[in-house]
Computed example of a mutant assay.
Amino acid sequence: MAENVAEAIRDAALRLAETSDTARLDAEVLMAHALGVTRSQLLLGRMRDPAPAVFAALVDRRAAHEPVAYIIGKAEFYGLELDVTPATLIPRGDTETLIEAAREVLADRLPARILDLGTGTGALLLAALSLWPEAEGVAIDRSPDTLAVAQANADRHAPAARLLVADWTQPDWSADLGRFDLILTNPPYVEDEAPLDASVRAYEPAGALFSGPEGLDDYRILVPQLPGLLAPGGVAMVEIGWRQAEAVVKIGVQAGLRARVHRDLGGRDRVVAFSGTNVEGA
């Protein structure tokens, strides 16, 4: 192990370059975690400190493709720090497109009730409630272990949110939920045999990733149920894979919904906003 923090980060970044496109950043984040400080505090005042012994084990885990978020137990989404565990997907920046699309669609009105389907860490619901704190927030997930993580995050960011174990593939799962002005969901949509980075396929929960040979199985189940969950004038923001827009829009139209596609910052189709009938282009 190198003698001081700066040297340890340098050596770790060289090693991690074989498995990570963000090797230097990974090394800095892991070192900050090992020291119990923020990355800014690390860079501004701790680079000459002795390197902590625990850092080597953290680097070993990252070198084995384990995601940094699982190693440190934290991830940021829409400005919120969230707990993450292997029971949850790691929130990603592309998913923030759902929140931005909702802000655009709801620019002239406030949602009274918000529903997050398959909440994971609670990221979508908590981000929405940070914008509309007076709204009633409800989230579901089929995994009690996942919901426990979401509950811890809700306790910190939106204590009034209501989190429930429910599974949209089961009969009558939504019987007591009522209707919502805004529905947010990032359902499983990866093809079963899709090539994925080892850090995703080996570590993130398969049940939250994969959805049949075309990645469409959950859309076929969930989207036709949206009309019964939407309040008059309500909108559902559904995340999609960037090549799935046409197929998901078709599922919604067959269910009597209007669809509009929103793109992420990279210009890729990322969200379908469902509301009434007919189809409006992106």
Rank of each mutant, 00 (worst) to 15 (best):
A6Q: 14
A6H: 07
A8L: 11
I9P: 04
A12M: 07
L14W: 10
T22R: 13
A23E: 02
A23C: 02
A23M: 02
D26I: 01
A32Y: 06
A32S: 10
L35S: 06
G36L: 03
G36C: 02
Q41C: 00
L44V: 10
G45F: 01
P50W: 04
A53D: 15
V59N: 08
A63P: 01
E66I: 06
V68S: 03
I72L: 09
G73R: 02
A75L: 00
A75Q: 08
E76I: 02
F77E: 02
Y78G: 11
Y78S: 10
L82E: 01
D83P: 00
A87K: 11
T88L: 04
R92I: 10
D94S: 08
T97D: 09
R103N: 07
R103W: 06
T119K: 03
G120L: 02
G122I: 12
A123T: 06
E136K: 12
G137Q: 10
I140L: 13
R142Q: 13
R142S: 14
S143C: 03
S143T: 05
T146V: 09
A152Q: 14
H157A: 14
A158T: 13
A161S: 11
R162C: 09
L163Y: 04
L164Q: 12
A166H: 03
D167R: 14
Q170S: 12
Q170C: 08
L177T: 05
L182K: 01
I183D: 00
N186F: 04
E193T: 13
A198I: 01
Y203L: 01
E204H: 01
G207P: 01
S211Y: 05
G212R: 09
G215P: 11
L216N: 04
L216Q: 08
G234S: 08
I240W: 09
W242G: 07
Q244I: 05
V248L: 06
G252S: 05
A255D: 13
L257E: 05
R263D: 08
L265A: 12
R268D: 09
V272D: 14
F274D: 07
G276R: 13
T277H: 15
V279Y: 11
E280L: 11
E280H: 11
